[in-house]
């Protein structure tokens, strides 16, 4: 899975994942030392004035973070929502990915595929609502 050759892509996928689905795919996890136990808080989301300009504070989102150590490797996670188990699982998988990217990429391949399919379905529905204009030419304009 080419998508997960990059740690940023992995962490994004873990953050967006539905907690139940991630737990099911991950299966039993190895022993991990909690460097920072899961903690729920907020992140201030910033927008840009005019879409491209200077930043402004838009409002907060709920985020849960966790840091663990698996076999001497530190793994970190920031995930959307309040699910502490989700954050812990994501942090453990981040550590495991650093030890063996190919194995974790294969493990999470279904998650990436399901997300792509979900996005495609929405995009396809949006495409069906795209307006195709046609112009009626009036006689006197010809």
């Amino acid at each position: 899975m080419s998508l997960l050759t990059d740690r940023r892509a992995l962490m994004g996928l873990l953050a967006r994942a539905a907690p139940d689905r991630l737990a099911a795919l991950a299966g039993p996890l190895p022993e991990a030392i909690e460097l920072r136990p899961a903690q729920t808080g907020t992140v201030m989301v910033q927008g840009r004035i005019g879409g491209t300009g200077a930043a402004f504070k838009m409002g907060e989102m709920v985020v849960t973070r966790c840091s663990v150590q698996v076999a001497g490797i530190a793994g970190h996670a920031h995930v959307q929502g309040r699910d502490k188990a989700h954050a812990r699982t994501a942090a453990v998988l981040d550590a495991m990915w650093q030890a063996d990217p190919a194995r974790i990429a294969a493990l999470l391949a279904p998650l990436a595929a399901e997300e792509t399919a979900r996005r495609q379905t929405r995009a396809a529905k949006a495409a069906a609502t795209r307006v195709e204009f046609f112009t009626l030419v009036r006689g006197e304009d010809q």
């Binding site: 903690q39 729920t40 808080g41």
Partner: peptide, 29 residues
């Protein structure tokens, strides 16, 4: 919200990269 700690501040959103479900303009057809 007041019970939660602030963990950080995001990068400014890139709305140009939005996956749009709706997008209209009343100025350009």
């Amino acid at each position: 919200r007041t019970t939660l700690p602030r963990l950080g501040t995001s990068q400014p959103l890139e709305t140009a990269k939005m996956q749009v479900s709706r997008r209209i303009s009343a100025t350009f057809k």
